[in-house]
Simulated scan of single mutants.
Amino acid sequence: MNGNGLIKPMGTHVVECMSVQVYVDRDQMGAAAAAAVAARLRQLLQDSERQVRIVFAAAPSQNELYAGLIREQGIDWSRVCAFHMDEYIGLADTAPQRFGRYLTERLFSHVQPGRVELLDGLQDVEQESQRYGNLLCEAPIDIVCLGIGENGHIAFNDPPVADFEDPRVVKAVELDESCRCQQVNDGCFAHLDDVPAEALTLTVPTLMAGRELFAIVPGASKRRALAAALHDPISTACPATILRTHPGITMFTDREAYGL
């Protein structure tokens, strides 16, 4: 921690357009990411006429970020419009694994954004994709907070379905088995057969259209995917490689994920 009370990374690296900040552990990584997101929110909200539009990921990798955001002060959340980036198709409203429920419990119920728009995986897939896409297109997205999957996916754009030139805003996808296995590894589901086979997801161009991206990638289970995202050729074989081309992206990771 430096003299201003800010957590200092172990190292900072630049990979093409991406700034990569490596922290000693998940707690420091999450606190630093929360401070950065909060600082950007406060800056944007200085315009009293402005509503800030932000997309959030729902995954255990984001737990420390959201715990930190709850502690941040001086943010007028009533002028924040919150979206999320994916949702299972067909999962019951009461299921604890629903991503909308995760975000509500972990973040929204604490900070109370003025507007929360949730994907509904129980509705007609095409109609829901169109409805949510229309909401996202009402105005530019200011901030995207995202992670990277063990197979290199961003949102639910797994390698077999990721499309860097996708014309859609939101689409239905069949989940890759490695993606479904991660949901078991993360403790979200007890067995692979319990994990839904399909989901709705924001497409890669929708995520990349965010003006500023904050990627939060902790833990040894993400080491291989993170190395690929930072160093492999840019391709849908590892969808996260496209993040390196975004002009406004900062990645927060820990030494377990980075390999220090």
Rank of each mutant, 00 (worst) to 15 (best):
G210L: 04
A162I: 01
G68Q: 02
S109I: 03
E126A: 10
T206G: 06
G133P: 02
Q73E: 14
R98C: 15
K171R: 13
A33F: 02
H110R: 15
R98H: 06
D163S: 04
P113M: 15
L107A: 10
R255C: 10
W77L: 03
D27K: 10
C137Y: 08
L202T: 09
Y102L: 12
P167L: 08
G210N: 10
V144G: 04
R53S: 04
N157H: 03
P113K: 12
H84R: 05
P9A: 12
C179A: 12
V161D: 01
R180C: 04
N2R: 15
A209G: 15
T12W: 05
M208A: 11
Q97I: 04
K8H: 08
P247A: 14
M251W: 10
L44E: 09
H13R: 14
R42M: 11
A95V: 07
D27N: 13
E128W: 07
N157A: 02
Q46W: 05
H231Q: 15
P9T: 07
I70L: 03
P60G: 02
V15C: 11
G133E: 02
M18C: 12
Q97Y: 02
R42Q: 12
C17L: 13
V20G: 05
I249R: 13
D86N: 00
V14H: 13
C145E: 01
D194M: 05
G3K: 04
D163R: 05
H84D: 02
G147W: 01
E256F: 12
A32L: 09
H246L: 04
E126M: 09
I249L: 15
